[in-house]
Design a protein around this nucleic acid. Sequence first.
DNA 1: AAGTGGTCTAGACCACTGA
DNA 2: CAGTGGTCTAGACCACTTC
Lengths: 246, 246
Amino acid sequence: MKSRPLPEQPPLHQVISEKLRQQIRDGQYGPGSQLPSESQLIEQFRVSRITVRQAIANLINQGLVTAYRGKGVFVNQQRKVTYSLSHPLVFFDQDMARQGVSSSIQNLLFERVSAPEDVQQALQLEEATEVYLQKKFLLIDRVPVALDITYILTSLGEQFASELQSHLTFPILEQHGISVCRITATVEITRASPELSELLEVPLGDSLLTYRYTAYSDRDQPIVWGETLSRGDRLAYSVVLSKQSS
Amino acid sequence: MKSRPLPEQPPLHQVISEKLRQQIRDGQYGPGSQLPSESQLIEQFRVSRITVRQAIANLINQGLVTAYRGKGVFVNQQRKVTYSLSHPLVFFDQDMARQGVSSSIQNLLFERVSAPEDVQQALQLEEATEVYLQKKFLLIDRVPVALDITYILTSLGEQFASELQSHLTFPILEQHGISVCRITATVEITRASPELSELLEVPLGDSLLTYRYTAYSDRDQPIVWGETLSRGDRLAYSVVLSKQSS
DNA sequence: AAGTGGTCTAGACCACTGA
DNA sequence: CAGTGGTCTAGACCACTTC
């Protein structure tokens, strides 16, 4: 057992995880299907359990599979939904329906709070002004996809309180004649906090696709600041950029 | 040693990695500084080496630290650079200089190839048309940040071959009067292939911020298809969306 | 040579799932 | 109940960095 006369370069666990990765890519293990159990892999590759576990850990970190205690290791679905930033005014549901998936929005929180510092700045508010804070939870095909956090001016929040709790923000404003004429936004990768990790059912510290924006009214006043944290394996953003003036 | 009368809920390795994470966040271990070695952590927490290693693995997967064999474990820099999608026509260097960092572009590849199928579709080409394929490598502060892959129509590629190899694509076209009037793009998270993993110096399968676009000329002809794969810990995109017509 | 992280082994107990 | 993955131990050898 000790004899290892050929010092191959790639470590064992990587050889194993690469082999499995290939088999997954080639469809030998399709989405949703179960990988061989640890004990089977130990026999198959003649290695210790720790080595097998590290191989599987590689695949988990690469987002390819998920392990469930007592059940097994399963290949993840890869299907992604695209959300258009350029036409945020279509109903979310319509957008999703067009892509052939069912979606739902779940209200987690809707309350009046004093604005945190960064929101204060973004919305150009006085010290300690109150705003409405809303947290919404987006599900697609019953799988959690994103958490949306919105801070909205109190006047608007009061006015549309009930609607805000079951729909996306922009369509509501639009329907009531409050037009958003400009949005400044950033897109980046952030890491899942413990709270988000639980909500979105991803490992702690997993990469999230994060969209942050400030929306301005037609009088160029900022009225909404928001942040959408999405599972990177489930959501993509699309955008159309048109040249207006150099 | 065996006595563990209090069955605390979170596993040991998580307790340790969370403790270290807090200390990093609180500045006890600043960016670039070295964490205690494995043997020190073994003593400090009175656990086995495997447990310490798993704790550190957690931090590595969360993108907080990087381990170097023979040297130690070091806290990552967090500094991010923002690239504006709405004004892609400013020189990359200018954009970066404004943010107080030095940047450079390195040409990896520039050659004539027959267009892959997806590029063929995006550029509305006939079967087996040839295009120029360019791969560029972006460094900021001497750290690798992104790989840019561009497919450009042969006529344009020939014309500007020399310039394309040392500059970003859009400014060159713009300077020569070829105006890009519209770009359709998507932003999503993809995973590092072995090639990208080596180039960008990230673990295999690490999350990358991926920007994919098709650029159209003023006659609405697609002229360039491209893809930028960036390190999520180093780059963010910004965009301004203006309402034009509902 | 000493110290670091990387790989690997054999073996143990636990928590959860499903029949 | 058997089978699964999750946690943990003690100990070994290797590759790399630094002195």
